[in-house]
């Protein structure tokens, strides 16, 4: 294989390109972008705009997965954050007041930070398995979101708040800038400081990392906090885009889509190396897929079937046992235990 093909972005980019190509063939004006009232319109812009919350959640999830963890509660945090912001704004006298909106946004982000810290403490402090620890908030969080909204859909009539999720800056959706900013921060934190190295090190070999003097507990705590904040911001984008908060359905399945995006992006669920740009492309693939399916007129729910096969394909490719089985189909099948032991030791 050429070094070009070995690059971690090669396969995700190929898939994305193939999807876009399919769309181009199916509907030639897929790539056309029109300018209307100084805003850009077009399917590509939509993909970016609607994909923004998922990209955000997936960025946070990437770091968690890199530490060999998982965060199932992001969907609930998305709902809670949107709900608290909308509740505060809707109860304000002047819903367009900048102070109120900034305050609400800050409150939502702070709350998500606290929720992320809760997850982080359970995982790193109490030593509970990530999937179990975050399950608690996944279940309870939905209830909390509904508690905040009172089981209703809270609608806000604030054009300033709506700007976050549906406004435009320099002819592009504002949400793209939010995503870009978060991505930049994540990249800076992980690639310009040593945090990225510590995360990969802890995810790959926690014992050796501690022996080398890395504060593994702090690293783990901080990735869950970051993931919580990302989910919180995604919640703001999502609720602002539709100017309402739905405690029941906002962010439903986000945890699964985010994990999928992370895995497609090349980050292994076994921890270690992580690829933020890969994750972004993974999220874009998922969003493009959804858009494509809408476009060709298949019921959107069928996306799930496609997703199922994508998950399986990616996992099989990542599975050593599967690769070994393919590579050595002809090999004798004696000594199942040796293979078994190998499997368990690894």
């Amino acid at each position: 294989m050429s070094p070009f093909m070995k690059h971690h972005l090669f396969w995700p980019l190929c898939v994305l390109a193939a999807l876009l190509l399919f769309n181009l063939c199916y509907s030639p004006d897929f790539f056309s972008i029109t300018i209307h009232d100084g805003h850009l319109y077009g399917s590509l812009i939509d993909i970016l705009n609607f994909g923004a919350p998922l990209i955000l959640v997936a960025i946070g999830m990437t770091l968690v997965v890199a530490t060999k963890g998982i965060d199932l509660s992001v969907g609930s945090i998305v709902a809670i954050s949107g709900a608290i912001a909308c509740l505060r704004i809707s109860s304000g006298a002047d819903q367009n007041s900048m102070g109120l909106i900034l305050g609400s946004v800050l409150l939502a982000v702070l709350l998500s930070l606290v929720l992320g810290a809760w997850n982080g403490l359970l995982v790193s402090g109490a030593g509970i398995q990530p999937i179990i620890a975050t399950l608690i908030l996944m279940v309870a969080g939905r209830g909390i979101a509904q508690l905040i909204t009172g089981g209703q859909i809270i609608t806000v009539t604030s054009s300033n708040y709506a700007y976050i999720g549906s406004g435009s800056l320099a002819a592009l959706p504002f949400s793209i800038f939010v995503v870009a900013l978060v991505l930049m921060i994540a990249l800076l934190l992980t690639r310009r400081t040593a945090l990225g190295l510590f995360i990969e090190s802890v995810g790959c070999n926690p014992a050796a990392s501690s022996m080398s003097g890395i504060r593994a507990h702090w690293v783990i705590l901080s990735v869950y906090v970051f993931c919580g904040v990302c989910a919180g911001i995604a919640g703001l984008l999502l609720s602002s885009n539709v100017s309402s908060a739905d405690g029941n359905n906002a962010g439903l399945w986000y945890e699964l889509d985010a994990i999928l995006a992370v895995v497609i992006g090349g980050t292994s669920l076994n921890g270690g190396r992580f690829y933020l740009t890969g994750t972004v492309i993974g999220a874009l693939i998922i969003q493009t897929l959804t858009t494509t399916i809408y476009m060709i007129g298949v019921p959107p729910e069928i996306t799930l079937v496609v997703k199922a096969f994508v998950v399986l394909a990616v996992c099989l490719i990542q599975s050593d046992a599967f690769r070994a089985a393919i590579a050595a189909r002809w090999k004798s099948r004696h000594y199942p235990a040796e293979k078994e032991m190998g499997r368990h030791v690894s």
Partner: peptide
């Protein structure tokens, strides 16, 4: 998880 997507789909 894949099974969940598949069955639902």
């Amino acid at each position: 998880l894949a099974g969940m997507f598949l069955a639902r789909g």
